[in-house]
């Protein structure tokens, strides 16, 4: 990993809710264009982690900086895929995907081009006039992914985005996510409790401890995409992560 450009620096990050310490002195870097997975037990504060990194919640101690500056939605281009379904019900797929561009006041012509391109890439073009209530859960999550990539974010946070999908849909969407990532080379932080998913997707995995959450270890996954979950190397890395996690 040495030699890669550091994108985000997290220093001594802590977050308390009154007396409850949720995040405890986390310290790590995120590289430019990296696919980073954060794994941890359920209820360890992964969602809090996301909310703090994006600035939706204030930090108690420490700092998170992007290019030397505190993360600010108005300045930085951040996208967030929320854990709960977040398709906006009164917007069609097309309108939902373009919301970020609309907020940034991108010219109409460019919006049309970029939205069409991303819908093509995610295979949603023929559903562009549908409302979220008319499509399946897997498709809704694809809409959210398209919506997050269309703004070409500097940082993309994904908080257990596939937790509610069945496994075949999940594989399909994971492959699509990798495809989009390889094409756009965005920086992604992907939070999950599914170890196989983490090994399948990421370049590097941060394993978290039980609450108060800190970083236990980092695991490098240096395998080419597309990955094979029955591959010897793959299984080896997965077992290693599983061992780390057994202490939960």
């Amino acid at each position: 990993m040495a030699g890669r450009k550091v994108k985000i620096e997290v220093r001594n990050l802590s977050k308390h809710f009154d007396d409850l310490i949720v995040l405890h002195q986390m310290d790590f870097d995120i590289y430019e264009g990296e696919f980073l997975c954060v794994v941890g037990p359920t209820g360890c504060g992964k969602t809090t982690f996301c909310n703090v990194v994006t600035g939706l919640l204030p930090i108690t101690e420490g700092s998170i900086t992007m290019g030397g500056e505190k993360i600010d939605f108005k300045k930085h281009n951040v996208s967030f895929v929320f854990q709960e379904p977040s398709c906006i019900p009164w917007r069609t797929i097309w309108d939902d995907v373009k919301i970020g561009l609309e907020i940034r006041k991108v010219p109409k012509k460019e919006i049309n081009e970029r939205v069409s391109a991303i819908l093509d890439l995610t295979g949603l073009t023929e559903f562009k006039d549908f409302y979220p209530s008319q499509i399946s859960a897997g498709m809704k999550q694809r809409v959210v992914i398209a919506r997050s990539f269309v703004t070409e974010p500097d940082l993309l946070l994904m908080d257990e985005p596939f937790g509610q999908l069945d496994s075949s849909t999940r594989f399909y969407i994971e492959n699509q996510l990798i495809k989009v990532w390889q094409k756009t080379k965005r920086t992604i932080i992907f939070v999950t409790h599914n170890l196989e998913e983490a090994v399948y997707l990421s370049e590097r995995i941060l394993v978290c401890t039980q609450k108060p959450t800190g970083i236990k270890e980092e695991v490098i996954v240096d395998l080419p995409h597309p990955r094979d979950i029955t591959d010897r190397e793959f299984v080896k890395i997965r077992n290693r992560v599983t061992d780390l996690v057994k202490w939960w």
């Binding site: 939706l56 939605f73 996208s79 967030f80 929320f82 379904p85 919301i99 970020g100 907020i103 940034r104």
Partner: peptide, 12 residues
Amino acid sequence: VYVNVARVAGAS
């Protein structure tokens, strides 16, 4: 969540 979607995208 809907409010946060817009907030993260930098909405006023």
